[in-house]
Design a protein around this nucleic acid. Sequence first.
DNA 1: CTTGCAGCTATAGTTGCTAGAGCAATTAGG
DNA 2: CCTAATTGCTCTAGCAACTATAGCTGCAAG
Lengths: 145, 145
Amino acid sequence: MLTIGKLSETTGVKVPTIRYYEQIGLLPEPERSTGNQRLYGKAVQERLSFIRHSRDLGFPLEAIRELLGLSDDPNRSCAAADEIARRQLGEVNARLSRLLALRGELERMLVQCSHGTIADCRVIEVLGNHDHCAHDHHGEPVTAL
Amino acid sequence: MLTIGKLSETTGVKVPTIRYYEQIGLLPEPERSTGNQRLYGKAVQERLSFIRHSRDLGFPLEAIRELLGLSDDPNRSCAAADEIARRQLGEVNARLSRLLALRGELERMLVQCSHGTIADCRVIEVLGNHDHCAHDHHGEPVTAL
DNA sequence: CTTGCAGCTATAGTTGCTAGAGCAATTAGG
DNA sequence: CCTAATTGCTCTAGCAACTATAGCTGCAAG
């Protein structure tokens, strides 16, 4: 049985984050010691590693909740999990293309910087005027990752 | 003089967002009509376009606040603006490499999916175990974009 | 035994908005 | 000129996914 601190160490998830996951129902309420401290077994450790890994891959907590629901019920088809991963891949690809356009824009801005005073600073000028863009691939706002 | 709705239309920034920018001090408090409605001139329109464009390029509001401070004072050196843009470019590059690693991981997961039941679903299994990763480029948490 | 870290609960803050309630003002139609 | 629809106003709360703080208790080592 691990205390929350040990669980945190072995999984790489910070202590307040573990408590947060419990609060939102991603982790079950654990046993408590006589002194009211949380005690975790191996199963929760694996569940938490699963969450951590999925988060690292960019899955939102709601997708992870779905995936956990699926894996808690092993007779269902794999297709649902596949679907979630596929959706996630689509989003990653969308973010990638946006970031690539963005990088081009930033690089163009920096190359043009004349290192003079603000009065003729290309960075400021480019930011103030959409017309300076080579393309306007940056129409949609940059929201969550 | 534009009402907030017209300003929203011409800049593509939503009405509540404009009020929010005013609230946090990115936009000055505007004149009001006799009926207490906000009235905006050309200068604010340009300032808002600047903010919008910078946000589109992924600059956080605090960086934009800095940039606006610089452009309000046109005798200062361009170097500071250059620095902010360069920092932004670095962050974009970091996000890009993370996303590329991520995409590889997701593609690998999907290719391996056997389309059977959850019991032998590769997606679930891979997510539960870091050892399945080809590389562990996804060590750092995925935070804000 | 006591000191100091680890744990506990509960609340508030973060970023960048977005949505809703419950009003006042303006504009368009008849 | 009156009414209805739209737009505007303020204020508050909510979103993700945590992080930080305050003020307390538990526990293990010296």
